[in-house]
Amino acid sequence: MKYTNTAKEILKTVGGEDNIESLVHCMTRLRFVLKDESQADDAYMKNIPGVMGVMKKGGQYQVIMGNDVASYFKELQKISTFSTNANTTSSKKKNPFEAFVDTISSCMSPLIPALLGGGMIKVLLILLPLMGLLDAKGQTYTILAFFGDAPFYFLPIMLAYTAAIKFNVTPMLAVSVAGIMLHPNFVAMVTAGDPVFLFGIPVTLASYSSSVIPILIMVWLMQYIESFSKNNPDCY
């Protein structure tokens, strides 16, 4: 019941459903994009039970809720209708830094549950052997290590999908690009360290597992490539 009552108060305090362009959440905050931020009552919002604070950043009206943010978000979904598309942004023009932060936040926020899960497994793999409950050299430990490592190793693939949503490109094409970066044969080339050439052009050998920036740049470029292809169908 506390979630429902608080959600109703928050909805009313941001100016009602009609004033919401979109709403997403991260680990601790409800991130509203409002049509008119002046309709939100900051002072009243801070006094609502469960609300820890308010921030206005990157074109978003952020309500800090703590660890229970997902529960409040679900209640807001029940009592109102709004877009949950992270690509929806305020009509206010952002400076380059705000745009960069918004992009990173929009792409990374959906991945938090997977990264938290992987991190928790890694912590258990440290504690259980110390407590004598798990053999660090056994197969169970090795297989559980796969579970903990997977979200981080395949981070570029997951980012490719969320970035594709953010930049409005074809998700499976973006995922395929990330797959190229993590292909076992390419990884083997990087490990070997021998010179590699593509059509005579030297290829920089780098490990892209667990990386963030390279795949974001690739998907960002894809929006221009796809746009050019759609506007010039004769080129293919």
Rank of each mutant, 00 (worst) to 15 (best):
L134C: 05
K137Q: 15
A114F: 06
A136T: 14
M120G: 09
P96Y: 05
T103I: 14
K94S: 12
E98D: 15
T81A: 07
T89G: 11
L124N: 13
S105M: 15
I112A: 12
L130E: 11
L125C: 01
A114W: 00
K94L: 10
V101P: 15
S106N: 12
A114T: 05
V123S: 04
T84S: 12
A99R: 09
L130G: 15
P113M: 02
L125Y: 01
A86V: 04
E98P: 11
A136N: 09
K122P: 10
A136R: 15
T103R: 12
A136M: 14
K137E: 11
F97D: 05
P129W: 01
L111W: 00
L116Q: 14
L130T: 05
T89M: 13
P110L: 02
L115Q: 07
M131C: 02
I126Y: 13
C107E: 07
L128A: 11
D102T: 08
G138K: 03
C107F: 15
I112P: 14
G119Q: 00
L134I: 08
S90P: 03
I104L: 13
M108G: 04
I126D: 14
T89S: 12
M120E: 00
A99N: 11
L128S: 08
P129T: 10
K137R: 14
F100Q: 13
I112K: 10
L130R: 05
L127W: 08
K94V: 02
F82H: 08
S80M: 07
G119T: 07
N85Y: 08
D135H: 04
F82T: 02
K94Y: 09
G132E: 11
I126K: 14
F97P: 02
G119L: 01
N95S: 13
S83C: 01
L116R: 09
L124E: 12
K122L: 07
D135T: 05
S80I: 04
T84A: 14
D135R: 04
T89W: 05
S90C: 03
V123D: 09
T103D: 10
T89N: 10
L125D: 00
L133Y: 05
S91E: 07
N95W: 15
N95P: 12
M131K: 06
A136Y: 10
F82C: 01
L127I: 14
F97L: 15
S90T: 09
L116A: 13
G118R: 02
T88W: 09
L111K: 02
S83A: 05
G132A: 01
L128K: 01
